[in-house]
Design a protein around this nucleic acid. Structure first.
Lengths: 246, 246
DNA sequence: AAAAATCATTTGTCTGACAATTGGTTCCGG
DNA sequence: CCGGAACCAATTGTCAGACAAATGATTTTT
């Protein structure tokens, strides 16, 4: 009966919640202009700085954009796929780096999700997607490529695979899984032999997609996932050893 | 040599970016206390309100938490899976509702991702997961259940399936795909016959998971996805008709 | 009619202040 | 010496008012 949440929330957080709810509920539609900061301050009976803090919270979530000038103000933002990508990647990256998620768990999730794209990508990939993948494979074979650059190319390869499915929602969901893995992948040192093996598997995947072989793609992805897990286990075993000696 | 980005960004956005980068780079570790607002204002040569706006931006992304009092301040937040779920769902929901993503595209993505969990869930699901699924199936069969409640139960059922994979990263990634679909699913009117069919498929899925049948689960999920698409097509066809007449 | 100057509105930023919270500190009493 | 109560200091939360900067609309001038 009393207050479950008396005032654990700041005013700016409450106001942000109110406006956010209105946007989600559709009471505020895309590109609609919110009242000016002064008006909002009046409506909520708070000061303008407090309103501004609330608006900044919403802006941080890409829910609104602001523009200054005579006809300026805060406008409900159409959440773009690009915005969503960015948030997804930031969130996923931090989630993985801060929660002692094992490489194994993250890797399993990534390859499970990616395999979900395989049949669709085999069906719909365009020559563009294939070209991107082939180009990344070539890059991965270059001598003198740093491990970091190798991983970046790996990510680009896999993004092309995912995008090949031609489903932007899928691409968005996968963005986090693929990109957030990169920092973890960077912790591995790749020998030339490792790279050769990965490149061979990438080539198999590209070939399978070119031949519209969904099942083949899926199998090869599974193999690549397994191989990645093996590499990681070796890397961490080595690290564990040197830790013992350090 | 001039400015690539002259000043398209607010000061508070720049400061938020700086701090965010520091967190992502690991320069600021979990639970570490940031300098006080006054100190930050000094360091960045801005006023305290500007610093506060920056901090609110970060708080909106669950990157920091603030606490007041003598030993209070802003602390780097450990991004919890729960936090990440919430952001993921909000972002996905808005993305779908604002971008005229077709039901077909969203549904395809959802079932593709969910099928990725099938083999893992068949392998690892606990009796708890099965019990949840069975309970939701029972609920779905209750007479007088509103379409909305039916959809909510559907979501709960699918979440149990996904959680059964025992991979929190996977659960997190799927949260958006499954939950964000609910508003779209709510647009469909389910006849008793529709519900019976869905319940039958759900039962098949639960049975398959109980029998550790990954492939069977996958097949049934595919069938359920197809059926959902069919229902949606019918619903939209009807809607189109009445639109013609209205 | 076109261009330039002006204006009004709105966000961005600053200054200074006070309230509220909260852990630590000091002081008093036993 | 110990325990508790009063006090203190640091910090965030909020407010009020002001000015700067941007920007579209308006008015004036050419």
């Amino acid at each position: 009966m009393s207050a479950q949440k008396p005032t654990p929330q700041d005013l700016s957080a409450q106001i942000a919640s109110d406006i956010r709810d209105a946007i989600i509920a559709g009471d505020l539609i895309v590109d609609q202009r919110l009242p000016s900061e002064a008006e909002l301050a009046d409506q909520f009976s708070v000061s303008r700085p407090t309103v501004r803090e609330a608006l900044k919270r919403l802006a941080a979530q890409n829910l609104i954009r602001t523009q200054r000038g005579a006809t300026g103000g805060a406008f409900v933002n159409r959440m773009s796929f690009e915005d969503a990508y960015g948030q997804q990647i930031t969130t996923s990256t931090l989630l993985l780096s801060m929660n002692s998620v094992s490489f194994e768990t993250a890797c399993e999730a990534r390859y499970a999700l990616e395999r979900a794209c395989a049949p669709l990508s085999a069906q719909r990939r365009t020559p563009d997607h294939l070209a991107t993948m082939r180009a990344e494979i070539v890059r991965q074979g270059q001598t003198g490529l740093s491990d970091e650059a190798f991983c970046a190319s790996d990510v680009a390869f896999h993004r092309a695979l995912v995008d090949g499915a031609g489903n932007p929602v899928l691409s968005y969901q996968l963005a986090g899984a693929v990109e957030a893995m990169q920092p973890l992948m960077n912790m591995i040192t790749y020998t030339q032999r490792d790279r050769d093996r990965i490149i061979a598997l990438h080539t198999q995947i590209a070939d399978a997609l070119e031949a519209r072989g969904g099942a083949q793609t899926d199998d090869t992805l599974a193999a690549l996932g397994e191989y990645t897990q093996t590499l990681a286990r070796q890397a961490f075993a080595r690290r564990g050893h040197s830790a013992d000696h350090g």
